[in-house]
Design a protein around this nucleic acid. Structure first.
Lengths: 210, 210
DNA sequence: TTGTCAACTGTCAGTGGCTGACACTAACCT
DNA sequence: AGGTTAGTGTCAGCCACTGACAGTTGACAA
């Protein structure tokens, strides 16, 4: 790797870490791009040569995670039932994310940034849009696995929407709670997904005391 | 009603219509706040005294719709099963929205704006965030109906997430298709919701030819 | 080693969304 | 009619972001 390339990577990493650190401590809206650039001692213009916008820095890790989930689902054994394939893809991709990024952005920092994302309207909106795009990709893969046409058969999109909803709920609970380990997340996800069947079974009150 | 109040309402309505019309024809990002203000012949500053931001004008109708759905769900008979109560609330609120707003923003204009919302990343993101907030409210109401605690029992949030997912999918199909009537939407929603059960039943391939 | 090319960076000027401060006008009320 | 209050315009300024141009620094060959 070139000196040039190394230098580039170094300033990009520095910008990224500075941004995330500032977001996590001071808050997203309270952090200006000038602040981030100043913390790395480059011009504001340079920041925008590495990132398309302030937002992009906040979603660096989530972005990686998304690509890994897609990859994981693509390589799942085709005999698995859709919901099961999705669940396993997510669970297995978390390890990959952690390995790939822990040097650059420690899990603890990522957690703090995630809380900022959820509590900052503009970031939350962006997060949900990204999730929607991811779900669209996943629906297409599921449809292909099952030999269906996404535009003719609604079921792929429906399962993925349901799955995505559950994931979002668990993510929120996870980041709000105090067990911010990977195993905690795994456990939470599993129990919630197991609730899906019962939740749709109809009359809950009748089912609670049989 | 005062002369003052009438004047206020008139400029607000004028700003709203001008904004929506411009969004629908020229596009959201291609329309500046100055354009909107100029179309009504007021200063830019005045625009911001009526709307918190450019975005708010785009979501004027959706905002009304949200409050109506919440109201509808609140007054649903308590013996209905959750998914059914949700479905009926949405279906019945559409008529109310149409009545309440058709003078100010004709259905046809609203449709064009809706397509702009879906094709403009920033607006789509905002739309999804609003939906998420609405779903949170609905989950709380459902939980109350069923005598549950939203934070202890995951099922209210799960059904609402599923329901919301289906609604979003149908909305997209509806606005993309050519039957943009209310009845078309009603029909689409009904059929899609009926697919929920089968979609989760497990192995689709085995079920397709029994 | 040196000179050339290409890539990276800084500076500057400008746009668009949005806000605070202040002065001005017009509607309200007595 | 005259004082009060609400609504408006103007101006100045912040922040995210972009294009244009010039300066600097690593890459590579002669």
């Amino acid at each position: 790797m070139n000196l040039r390339e190394r230098k580039k990577r170094r300033t990009r990493d520095a910008l990224l870490r500075a941004a995330l650190e500032l977001f996590a401590t001071r808050g997203y809206e309270e952090t200006t791009v000038d602040d981030i650039a100043a913390a790395v001692d480059v011009s504001q213009r340079t920041f925008f040569r590495y990132f398309a916008g302030k937002e992009e820095t906040a979603f660096f890790v989530p972005r990686l995670a998304e690509t890994l989930v897609v990859e994981a689902l693509r390589t799942r054994p085709p005999d698995e039932v859709p919901l099961e394939a999705l669940r396993r893809s997510v669970l297995e991709s978390w390890d990959a994310i952690n390995e790939a990024v822990v040097e650059l952005v420690p899990l603890e920092l990522h957690m703090r940034v995630y809380r900022v994302i959820e509590s900052t309207p503009a970031l939350l909106a962006a997060h949900l849009r990204r999730s929607a795009e991811l779900e669209e990709q996943l629906a297409c893969i599921i449809a292909e696995r099952e030999g269906l046409d996404v535009d003719l058969d609604p079921r792929p999109r429906i399962v993925v929407a349901l799955f995505g909803g559950v994931i979002r709920v668990t993510e929120r609970l996870w980041s709000a709670g105090d067990d911010v380990t990977l195993d905690g997340m795994r456990e939470l996800t599993t129990t919630y997904l197991d609730q899906v069947g019962p939740a749709l079974a109809g009359n809950w009150r009748a089912k609670q005391s049989p």
